[in-house]
């Protein structure tokens, strides 16, 4: 359906399968993401979208299939199967969580600083002696975290506890924290859930801005208006299988998709 464009994809998933006991949550899934592309992943509740994210980020070990990530700068490809979640983040793929998982007793700034962990190096001795190198690294961490918070519009609340933020702000903080790990591919799990229309509009602008800065984005979303305006390409899942893939226009009129959303006798 989709013609394979230009270069190698940065994320290449093939034959991905995930079984939970008797339940097959992902069934031989194939898809890819190109550099600086916004791909939307849609499908009814329980289709397996979050499970896919968990497999990609190493939280679940897939039963079968291949996941490959290629750095767009170096072109170096890594097989992600079997890697620990922190290694995968280090490789350049970061995520947000559908059910917000911020460090709620830490401040907004500290949450983002945690994201810098895998890009910094100071160890025990550095922490105790607080030598010049450690101090400089710490300052750089603070500086970069501030910059990211400014970008997502949370610069005014840096010292607030993350748990005290409004729902929409928490979602934006999740994005900020993921960005701090310097990913080239960002996975967003329902970033607009629970946001009011005004916040959703701001989110669309933010996601576009992030893409324009050179990140590719794979996003799960139920808000069809957002999906249709934002994404370059849409992948539709149902019962763990990919049932359609294409541009927003192609998906809007796809019979399979309409059937999946409205039921067998729909239309």
């Amino acid at each position: 359906m989709m013609n394979k464009r230009m270069s190698k994809p940065i994320l290449d998933v093939s034959g991905l399968t995930m079984d939970f006991g008797g339940i097959r949550a992902l069934d031989h899934l194939d898809f890819d993401v190109q550099a600086t592309e916004i791909v939307a992943l849609i499908g009814p509740n329980g289709a397996g979208k979050t499970t896919l994210f968990n497999c990609l980020t190493g939280i679940y070990q897939p039963t079968d299939g291949e996941i490959r990530l290629a750095c767009p700068k170096t072109g170096q490809q890594t097989r992600l199967n079997g890697l620990k979640p922190n290694k995968i983040t280090e490789k350049g793929m970061a995520r947000t969580f559908q059910n917000i998982r911020l460090f709620s007793q830490m401040t907004v700034l500290e949450n983002v600083m945690i994201g810098r962990h895998c890009r910094t190096h100071s160890l025990i001795l550095g922490a105790i002696l607080r030598n010049r190198k450690t101090r400089e690294e710490e300052q750089e961490t603070i500086h970069k975290s501030y910059e990211i918070l400014e970008k997502v519009g949370l610069a005014g609340q840096v010292d607030e506890l993350a748990g005290n933020l409004s729902y929409g702000a928490q979602r934006r903080l999740e994005i900020a924290r993921a960005l701090a790990t310097e990913p080239f591919l960002l996975l967003l799990d329902e970033p607009a859930a629970g946001m009011n229309p005004q916040e959703t509009v701001e989110l669309v602008t933010l996601i576009r801005q992030i893409r324009d800065e050179g990140h590719a984005i794979l996003l799960i979303e139920h808000d069809m208006k957002l999906v249709m305006t934002l994404s370059d390409r849409v992948v539709v899942m149902d019962y763990g299988e990919k049932i359609a893939e294409g541009t927003p226009e192609q998906i809007r009129t796809n019979r399979e998709v309409i059937k999946a959303y409205l039921g067998e006798d729909g239309e």
Partner: peptide, 29 residues
Amino acid sequence: NRLQHSRLGRAWLALREDEIACQAMGIDK
């Protein structure tokens, strides 16, 4: 005090708060 307010100390706090999110943020738990 110095340990608590360092990169390592923040990682410990993150571990206490949420182990999965902590790993997903690139921390070797």
